[in-house]
């Protein structure tokens, strides 16, 4: 990956993180931890990989994205706003009565949201359905989805995993946000899903295990798909990444920062952004 592209993507990820905090703070509730952990993958998808256009959000040929861990909606809204689907200012209406930015993504209110999600496990199945539909029609779009490591405890995830391999959905790329935390604690202590790589491999998937904050590794993994198999990219990530006091802290799964915390977070995120002031 060229240095200029790397810096550009890192800048986009930093902007996404800044908007996540803006949204959750203004809402007074929401899920910062799991939004911040997948910000780099979101930046890569929306600013490098996916063939989508804000000018034509319903283009039948567009690539599809399903946020199966729908509670990370602030990350998706931030990426969509920065891509021009709606004004970034609107992130301040997140979760408020009358806002189209619902607590969990709603495909009928937000342009660019391809599937409504929020109930864990279901988005992954829907992504399989979109990929299967393309196999039927011969459409050339690709389907991307992000699920949580806690989410992988849902039985539906494994029903979908079996389905995707059975129907050879090589037009489906899934990211598993392996941030090792869920609501009640460490994923491995609550209900251990490990070894996830071996499990998905045994289910017939092509599997990569990468640092989910490293764009070079994300790019290498995304372009390593194999004909005839769905691709699972397990992303080793830090929940709360980018805001020091939220990092690896279980308490920041579903809680908004209060004003002093917000100010600290903004200071950190803005100083990260300064690094990219010259980056176009």
């Amino acid at each position: 990956m060229e240095q200029s592209k790397l810096l550009y993507l890192r800048k986009k990820a930093a902007q996404i993180r800044r908007l996540i905090i803006e949204g959750v703070y203004n809402a007074g509730s929401g899920h910062p931890g799991g939004s911040l952990s997948c910000a780099d993958v979101m930046a890569y998808l929306y600013f490098e990989k996916m063939n989508v256009s804000a000018a034509d959000p319903q283009d039948p040929g567009r690539d599809r994205f399903v946020l199966s861990k729908g509670h990370a909606s602030p990350a998706l809204y931030a990426a969509l706003a920065l891509r021009g689907y709606f004004p970034a200012e609107e992130i301040k209406t997140l979760r408020k009565l009358g806002s189209r930015l619902q607590g969990h993504p709603d495909m009928h209110t937000v342009p660019g949201v391809d599937m409504s999600t929020g109930s864990l496990g279901q988005g992954f199945s829907a992504a399989c359905g979109m990929a299967k539909a393309a196999k039927i029609t011969g459409a050339k779009y690709h389907v991307y989805t992000i699920l949580g490591d806690g989410e992988s405890q849902e039985g539906e995830v494994w029903e979908a995993a079996m389905f995707a391999a059975h129907y050879k959905l090589d037009n489906l790329t899934a990211f598993l946000d392996y941030n090792k935390l869920q609501i009640d604690g460490d994923v491995r202590e609550v209900m251990n899903p490990d070894p996830l790589d071996e499990k998905f491999r045994a289910f017939g998937w092509e599997v990569r295990f990468i640092d989910g904050h490293d764009f070079r590794q994300i790019e290498a993994a995304v372009s390593s798909g194999v004909s005839g198999r769905p691709l699972m990219i397990i992303c080793d990530t830090v929940k709360g990444k980018g805001v020091s006091f939220m990092e690896n802290a279980v308490g920041w799964h579903g809680k908004a920062p209060k004003q002093p915390e917000y100010e600290t977070a903004v200071k950190e995120l803005e100083s990260a952004l300064e690094e990219f002031a010259e980056v176009e």
Partner: peptide, 8 residues
């Protein structure tokens, strides 16, 4: 439930 919205 409040802010979580329709799915919850």
């Amino acid at each position: 439930v409040g802010e979580d919205g329709a799915t919850h």
